[in-house]
Amino acid sequence: MKILIIGGSGTISTYVVRKCVEMKMDVTILNRGIHHVDLPKSVKIIIGDIKDKQAMMTLMKDNFYDSVIEFVAFTKEDVQRDIEVFKGKTRQYIFISSASAYHKPVEDYPMTEETPLKNPYWSYSQDKIECEEYLKTVIDMNITIVRPSHTYDNKMIMAVMTRWGYEYAHIQRLKDGLPIIIPGDGTSVWTITHAKDFANSFVYLIGNEAAYNDVFHITGEKLYTWDQLTQMMAQALGVKAHIIHIPTDFIIQMMPEMEGPLFGDKSWSVIFDNSKIKKISQEYTSNIGYEDVVMDVIKYYESQPEKQKISEEYEELYDLTIELYQKNLRS
C-alpha cells in the first residue's frame, strides 16, 4: 500500500510512520525538512511546503497514493487546499482532528464519536470543528476523520499549567520547590495516550474501506488525575511536589491565555468509549502509562539545554495568581 504522510516528524506521526513501515507499507513523508527525526531507511522524503498549493499540485502531478494522511492541517483553508491538491490523487484522505472538539462543558460520559462537537472556549478546537464540518461536505473523495486525545511520547512533560513552548518550567518549579497550580480540587480524571499505542490502532484505518467517510477517536484507557501526574514527575525527580488547588475561573481571571487550554480542554474529566476503533483495529492497545516514560522525559530535557526554556513573564503571572488567591483565602 502506497501512502503519503504530511508531517511525519511530530509526536504522533513519528510513531505512525514506524508502524506503517512495520506493516510493510510504502511510506513517503512530506514536510519542510525543519525537524529531524530518525526514520526507517525505507521511508521516502519529499521536501516541500504543503501550504504552497501550486507547488504541491506540481509535485503531485504524476503521483497517486492509496491514502494521504494529514497531520498538520489546522484550519478550514488548510483542508480545502488539500482537497484541491489531492483530488484524483488518492483513494482516501485521513484528517487528524482533536478530541478537544467534543462538547464543552462536558455533559455525558463516556464520550463517543456521536458526542456533539462544541467548544466555545478554545480557537484550536473551533478550527478543528470547522475542518470536520467542511470535510463532511466533500463528495468526490473518501474521508476519514481521526480524533486523538492528549497523545504523548517519551519527551512530553505532562503538566496542566504551562505556556506552549515553555513546558520545562514545570520541571524547574518542582526542582526549586515552588508551588504547582492544579485547577479545581485535583480530582478530575484525564485520559492520556502514548503515541505507540495510538499508532497500533491507527494503521488499520489506512486504506480500509470500512473507515471511509467515517469518524473515529483513538485514545488510551489509562486514567490519571493531574495531582497524580504531578506527583509522578516529582517522584522521578526525587523531590516533593507542593501542589496548590485553585478554582479554574480564578486562574483564567488572572491568566486569560489559559481559558482555551483549561475550560476548553484540561479542566474537565474526559473518559472515552473506544468500542468503534476496537472493531476496526486488530491490535488495539493501551499498554504504556506515563509512569513508564517519565524518567525518559526528564533525561531528554536534561540532555537538551536548548529545550530548557522558561518564560519569565508567564512565571511572574503564575506566582502572582498563587499570591492573590492565598491572600483572598486569608481575607
Rank of each mutant, 00 (worst) to 15 (best):
I181F: 00
D273F: 03
M232G: 10
S201Y: 09
V85P: 08
L223K: 15
C131T: 13
G177S: 09
F64P: 04
T151D: 08
L178I: 01
I45T: 15
E209L: 12
Y65Q: 02
L174E: 06
Y301K: 05
K240F: 02
P305I: 10
N328E: 09
S149G: 00
D176T: 00
K309H: 12
N63F: 04
K87T: 10
S98V: 07
S123F: 07
T144M: 06
F216E: 06
F250N: 07
E291R: 09
I181H: 01
R173Q: 08
V21E: 10
D38K: 15
E312D: 14
D273G: 05
E107F: 12
W122H: 11
D62S: 11
L4G: 06
V239F: 02
L317V: 01
Y102A: 06
A101W: 03
I206P: 05
P120G: 08
S100R: 01
I243W: 08
S42H: 07
I69E: 01
P40D: 13
K276D: 02
E306T: 11
Y301V: 00
Y65L: 06
E313L: 12
M232V: 13
I5H: 03
T14K: 13
I139V: 14
D108R: 15
Y290W: 12
Y15R: 06
Y290I: 10
E113R: 05
D319Y: 00
Y318Q: 04
F64A: 01
E107A: 14
I6V: 15
D82R: 06
N208E: 14
K196E: 15
K128R: 14
A101I: 13
S188E: 14
V160P: 00
N154V: 01
M57V: 04
K155L: 08
G48S: 11
E315F: 05
I310F: 09
I251N: 07
S125K: 04
G289K: 01
I310N: 02
D62F: 09
N119Y: 10
F198D: 01
I69W: 02
K41V: 11
K240C: 07
Y318C: 01
K136P: 02
K175V: 15
L320R: 14
R81G: 05
K104C: 13
I83D: 04
Y301R: 07
L59A: 10
H35Y: 14
G88S: 11
V239P: 03
L135K: 03
K2N: 15
R32D: 09
G289E: 05
E77A: 15
K278I: 00
N31A: 12
G48R: 07
H245A: 09
L135E: 04
E316C: 00
D49S: 13
S331H: 06
V270F: 01
H35E: 14
V160M: 12
M158G: 03
G238A: 12
